[in-house]
Design a protein around this nucleic acid. Sequence first.
DNA 1: AGAATGAGCGAACAGTTGTAAGCTAAAGTG
DNA 2: CACTTTAGCTTACAACTGTTCGCTCATTCT
Lengths: 202, 202
Amino acid sequence: MSRAEQKERTRRAIINAAFSQLSADKSFASLSLREVAREAGIAPTSFYRHFADMDELGLTLVDEAGLMLRQLMRQARQRIEKNGSVIRTSIETFMEFVTGNSNVFRLLLRERSGTSAAFRGAVAREIQHFVAELAEYLRKETICPDELARAQAEAMVILVFHAGADALDAPPEQYSYLTSRTITQLRWLTHGAAGSGRKPKG
Amino acid sequence: MSRAEQKERTRRAIINAAFSQLSADKSFASLSLREVAREAGIAPTSFYRHFADMDELGLTLVDEAGLMLRQLMRQARQRIEKNGSVIRTSIETFMEFVTGNSNVFRLLLRERSGTSAAFRGAVAREIQHFVAELAEYLRKETICPDELARAQAEAMVILVFHAGADALDAPPEQYSYLTSRTITQLRWLTHGAAGSGRKPKG
DNA sequence: AGAATGAGCGAACAGTTGTAAGCTAAAGTG
DNA sequence: CACTTTAGCTTACAACTGTTCGCTCATTCT
């Protein structure tokens, strides 16, 4: 096996070890370098061959989580073309992601208000991707100033994220309630915004 | 000084020490018993005379934070009577609290999605007080099913909380923008909800 | 007065942590 | 082939952590 190949392999082992140790009871901040190294199957000091410190690993995790989120968006758009209902499909796709990759979502959720400014910034950037795409969509579908489209998109993303957070602590039989509640909230937003100076296009 | 009096005094010293160590870079989880004891001016072992462990202290902090929040609500209501504008006054009062007691707000913000289920539950309960009061208000002012009033109140509280979180990382000159953005979002919600089967009362 | 209580202390323990230094051995290079 | 590079290892250290134990001594109770 080539050297670079092997290096990449243990780098992934470290990343996977970190992800797998995240849980409802364990945040990234409470991971230790040694524990991660142990699970990755390397000596503690070998960790430094791949990351300068735990922060660098953390930022990598946030990046990867953001990537997954964006792939999710693409998947949602495909579903929308077949399905029709934009809001419902988007939320359902998102809820599936949250419940299926809860550790990944938890990372974003926690580091959004965590103790590292760098982490908070990284998460905020990932979320802004969401907001920007949604705002773009709103601008296409309606006639309204950029500023308002953005404020609307932000509100929507916040509400959806929060529904995801609720789902983490809720029993599965409540998922459909959380979904429909969020749909209602988002419809209120769109209707309210449409009534305040915005017009449906065409 | 009486015994009970003195005990209460050092108990407060511990609580205050814990609050004062919370900051943008230090979450409750990263506080150590020894550090807190040091700042409170007692030996590490004396801590146990007042709390069984750090978790018990943490729950106390959350309780106190919730108390401050409810006092804030009362203060807001007084202002509303003089001022008139419900939404604007509420949000402005809240933003003042957030910027003036940022460590307290940060505690709630972080433990809401933290690693301890007990903490998450405690914070959720405090926030539900907010939601319940607001939902009650909405029911009085409008005719709508309890269920919808609650969903609307929840959405509003989420958006206001999020604005507070944004303020923590924003320079002060952006506070007024954050406030007005949130006002817009809340007005959309009320208008949208009013349009969907709800009617203004009287 | 005398006994009981209990807040606070110092010393000590076992466990963990991050990280530095220096070695080995395999892969890459000329 | 000899030479360099480097991922990974072992050992080691100093700094912390939470917690147990047994003591003191001022307050409180009888």
